[in-house]
């Protein structure tokens, strides 16, 4: 995984304006999709394409509705008027700006 770096600096980054991976968005917090970097890896490339088709595009409002029993895996994500279950891996591909 290229982007999923959780750590003590999480709160610091959240207060600043820099985007965080959706996988690290706190439960129930609204955010806006900032960017979905297109990975080089073929499988992840197709995955990103599908995520975009499902509505995960820059500007969309997202929120974690529920967490699975694992460590934030899977995640139920509200995007627009839809809800999708995503694994941590998929959720880490999407960068979001947390709403203040």
């Amino acid at each position: 995984m290229s982007i999923g770096v959780a750590g003590p600096d999480l709160s610091a980054r959240m207060s600043s304006a820099s985007p965080i991976p959706l996988a690290e968005l706190p439960d129930g917090q609204w955010a806006t999709v900032a960017d979905i970097p297109v990975p080089q890896d073929r499988a992840d490339h197709d995955l990103v394409l599908r995520l975009m088709e499902l509505g995960f595009v820059p500007g969309e409002r997202v929120r974690i509705v529920a967490e699975g029993l694992g460590r934030r895996d899977p995640l139920a994500v509200r995007v627009g008027r839809s809800t999708f279950a995503l694994r941590h891996h998929e959720a880490a591909l999407i960068l979001v700006n947390v709403h203040p």
Binding site: A43, L47, R50, L51, L54, P74, A76, R81, S82, T83, F84, A85, L86, R87, H89, E90
Partner: peptide, 12 residues
């Protein structure tokens, strides 16, 4: 096993 995405819709 490779990573298997979930991408399952939870309809209204």
């Amino acid at each position: 096993h490779d990573h298997v995405p979930l991408l399952m819709e939870l309809p209204s």
